[in-house]
Design a protein around this nucleic acid. Structure first.
Lengths: 215, 215
DNA sequence: TTTACAATCCCCAAAAGTGGTGAGTCGCCG
DNA sequence: CGGCGACTCACCACTTTTGGGGATTGTAAA
């Protein structure tokens, strides 16, 4: 079964040359080639590609919006972005929008085939600088996820369960019901948790728990 | 000026063969080679590498903890992880801890030199499957950053003030005091907010507010 | 075996929050 | 001007939470 590929690019020459290039590979089949993304959902619906090559600069709807739209409708389609410039920020955005790979047009001739195969087999081909950017963003985000880091309050498993419940908005009674224990037991746990987290009310508790990503 | 490289790996053979391999490149200089990471901070302080090759499985302190520690002390040092198995999760964690690249030991011979150079010139060499994992995590995280996106609950400025207070753990009385209004007024605002956010208790309110990044 | 602690349950009195209803002032817009 | 909405305040009845006390069981470490 061949790998079905669709191309979106406003430049006819590039579209054609990509098509020619891809046709040199037996297992590739170019099933669509479009100069804009205004009808991209309908286009994809019609040609059913496995992989989409998406130019990032296009008239009308931009490639990155198209990615977002397409990914919402067809999450299983893999999208590889391509751009002339090493336009880090926009490519980065499009990656966040749902693209799985990225390649510079300069490298189309030498790297396109390999990149598509990498994409097909579970990889995410991207240029070095983008990779670094993604890594740093990654680290930055996970960093802000745990502010104090090693804030270990030594909650017991049961206490964590109770905490999870109240944080999700359950009242003591509902927690008791959910965990099949009595109302008074819930209270006992809560009291302990209050001591351990140094709070004195549910609002503080929820706030601290969510801010510090406990439970 | 040569590129200074340090190696951490508990396997002497691997450490030696990596050293030999790297010495074939004129611009590389192996400035340190250590069988464990227990003194990694001191080691780095002593040999001052530009790039660290870090084995992920090691006795005592694990490679990933070492990454976290080192990055705290020497954020400018680039760290490349290496592992025998394609141990996605742990490698992924170490990347989050601050590693800038990752390579499978199988590929050491063929890809190590290139990967180090890629690292040196601003890239983030990593195996395809890890790249994909990172991408997906990236998308998932940025997704949860804006949950519904356009969740506009039309809170008035005053209501937002009140909300900010209660979310920070203040009781009604304290809010009243802080905003120089009466207790009953605070209650009025809270009631309105409850309606607008479709919640029925403070815990739900705090939870929803924090989850959806209101205030 | 004693000690320690998680987990379960109970009671009382005080404090805080919830729901409903009503109502006054102010400023803005048609 | 009249209506609307933001902001302010009040009262009543009710529920929920909080801060003290205490008790029992079982398990696991000292």
């Amino acid at each position: 079964m061949p790998l079905r590929i669709a191309i979106f690019d406003d430049n006819n020459n590039i579209r054609d040359s990509i098509g020619l290039l891809l046709r040199t590979e037996k297992e590739f089949e170019v099933v669509g080639s479009f100069p804009h993304v205004l009808d991209c959902v309908a286009d994809i619906k019609a040609c059913r590609p496995d992989i989409v090559l998406m130019d990032i600069e296009m008239p009308g709807m931009t490639g990155i919006e198209a990615v977002r739209t397409l990914k919402k409708e067809y999450p299983e389609v893999l999208i590889m972005m391509q751009t002339v410039f090493e336009d880090d920020d926009r490519v980065f955005d499009s990656i966040c929008a749902g693209a799985s790979g990225y390649i510079l047009k300069n490298f189309l001739n030498t790297r396109l085939i390999d990149s598509i195969k990498e994409l097909q087999f579970g990889g995410s081909p991207m240029s070095p600088s983008i990779a670094r950017k993604v890594m740093m963003k990654m680290q930055q985000v996970t960093e802000q996820m745990r502010p104090a880091g090693n804030t270990n309050y030594q909650l017991t498993p049961r206490e964590k369960e109770v905490l999870a419940c109240v944080v999700n908005g359950l009242s003591y009674k509902m927690v008791a019901d959910a965990l099949h224990i009595s109302y008074e037991t819930v209270r006992s746990h809560i009291k302990k948790i209050y001591e351990k987290l140094h709070v004195a009310s549910l609002t503080e508790l929820v706030h601290k728990t969510m801010k510090e990503r406990i439970v």
